[in-house]
Amino acid sequence: MMLRIRIFEEMVGALVTANEIRTPCHLYIGQEAIAVGVCTVLRQDDTVWGGHRSHGHYLAKGGDLKAMMAEIFGKATGCAHGRGGSMHLVAPAQGIFGTVPLVAATIPLAVGAALSAKLRGTDQVAVAFFGDGATDEGHFHESLNLAALYRLPVLFVCENNFYSTHLTLKERRVKDNIVESAALHGLASLVVDGNDVVAVYQAASQAVDRARAGGGPTLLECRTYRWRGHVGPALDLEVGQNRQRDLSEWMQKDPIMRLRERLREEGISDADLSEIEQRVAAEVDVAVSFARQSPPPDENELLHHVYASRRGA
């Protein structure tokens, strides 16, 4: 799955460079272990809530790859029928009710999904994925407090990639202590190596088990690094300080490379791994052809769906 995300993102980056994709794309390259580690723990009826950098969350939770590619192309066959683009992804049957780019906006929505599960008496869990930039918003702090107060089954997964657009963490807060927000509001927390998929999986398993059992919310601060710029495929080496050096260091901690080494140690052959890689690359190629050949949305659809037509009595 991490490879699927990586290869998908590299293809999107190439198509942005080629100007074939024009919607703003925020690439997840380098952060794949977090989406995959967390979503592997989840059931289909658990919900995930994302932001502008959510291609990885969508795929890891079971969203259809072709439908996302078509959405990024702005086509009628896209997961949001061409209304969303890269920043607005949806797959309700997979528990993805929407990812939207307003920073931190879906954090309270995830709290609401958890409240909904609690009131309906199910053991569903809600997961909010967000970056370190979102922890600068009031949404984040209000939501942590509310979730802890009502012991809601929600996971707050902070993907700390040390950047909020062009500003580094150091330029935005005195301390590198996002995880401490949890203790202030009275919820469990853990700092995780966000480039180690097994570590993320284990941390998420614990947190999800606790949430399902009525033990309340958890904040996971997954430390990782944004390989590309805030938006688009460029490396943005001019932002921050020492980005060139930091990026080289973090690329040595590539989550996919690390898993590959681990699998080798466990006796999985390079041939098996390259076969997976080829299969995924072929799947992405098919998705690009599908997206290219799909029709654009019908102009007559412009005024539809401003309001929901269905009425649940």
Binding site: T47, W49, F97, G98, A105, T106, I107, P108, L109, A110, V111, G112, A113, A114, L115, S116, A117, L119, R120, A126, G138, H139, E142, S143, N145, L146, G312
Partner: peptide
């Protein structure tokens, strides 16, 4: 916490509540 309570109500509405 107007932001979180209203947001939570919206999240609950999206996932089946009224």
């Amino acid at each position: 916490s107007e932001n979180a309570t209203t947001g939570a109500a919206i999240g609950a509405a999206i996932t089946g509540m009224r």
